[in-house]
Design a protein around this nucleic acid. Structure first.
Lengths: 163, 163
DNA sequence: CGGAATCCGCCACGATACTG
DNA sequence: CAGTATCGTGGCGGATTCCG
């Protein structure tokens, strides 16, 4: 039927401890699945768009730009399965399918906003860090190459030239 | 040198609008990169572990369980490049490298907590939604098969038997 | 219009071996 | 100990085609 049915990619036994401070132990459990969902290439945009109003399939398709019908379908199916998006089929001709955010989906959306805000606030710092890192890396690379060239020159001066 | 260097998988022009309410338009921009980072299979656990105290490479390797040295290295490099994790090399023998969360990394960690809390609060609802969805799907599947079988039976009754 | 089914390219990941 | 280099593979995602 489908290719991407991943059942339980890692069961995590209930430790009985609801201590959020130890969530790193469970980071690969439920959290991972939700994270994989919202971090999905298209899910985020779908959720964002549906937060305003419900949309039809083609409306989403046009709005998102770059998404294939296959991936949009898959994304919507996943979100629907998780109870984040509702799907209502109108038995008309031509068919009409409306997608909307469920209450739970709406709460997720507002939760994600915190992350978006964080990103907005730190994107400059991140960009700066990246630039600095790349400059350091490039410098080290260049230094290593100079060193190699020097060793090569020394070896050539000492050893007799072959062939 | 490396295989996974994905430079700017989608530049997003600065709209000049800082309206967070329209972040869906920019959902595929900076937010995506951060999300891809923290949603990474290992990044989350690394950040969570480093929040307590700084750790050596091997300590992380043992703590995470299942991570290959290659992926751990890549993950740490990415986090370091984004300025979320600091890497300090002690010029001893045998070599010793300590990883720690930067202040920015710490703020990200606390931001992610909101998402973890959301997941904790809704994981039961999500599990229920998934079960319900799967039951509906299975039911529709079965109905479709019954219908097909019925059509087949009718066709067999009407048409003469071939061969 | 809103999908489902099929084929296929590509690269991200993992395992392995080697280095300083 | 803390990496880098290389290779093989699975699965994700896109393009295409067909259906109700």
């Amino acid at each position: 039927m489908e290719d991407g049915t991943f059942e339980s990619l890692g069961y995590c036994g209930d430790t009985g401890v609801d201590d959020v401070l130890q969530w790193d132990q469970r980071a690969d459990c439920e959290v991972r699945q939700i994270l994989d969902r919202i971090a999905d290439k298209w899910s985020l945009q779908v959720i964002a768009l549906l937060d305003k109003r419900s949309l039809r399939f083609t409306e989403l398709r046009r709005a998102i730009d770059g998404v294939s019908q296959r991936m949009l379908t898959r994304t919507l199916r996943h979100l629907e399965r998780d109870g984040l998006v509702s799907r209502t089929v109108h038995p008309t001709v031509p068919p009409r399918v409306d997608y909307a955010l469920t209450p739970m989906g709406a709460t997720l959306h507002s939760t994600i906003r915190a992350l978006v805000v964080w990103t907005e606030e730190h994107q400059n710092a991140i960009a700066a860090a990246r630039t600095a890192y790349d400059r350091r890396t490039a410098a080290e690379q260049e230094a290593a190459e100079r060193e190699a060239a020097e060793r090569d020159a020394v070896a050539r001066a000492v050893l007799p030239v072959r062939g």
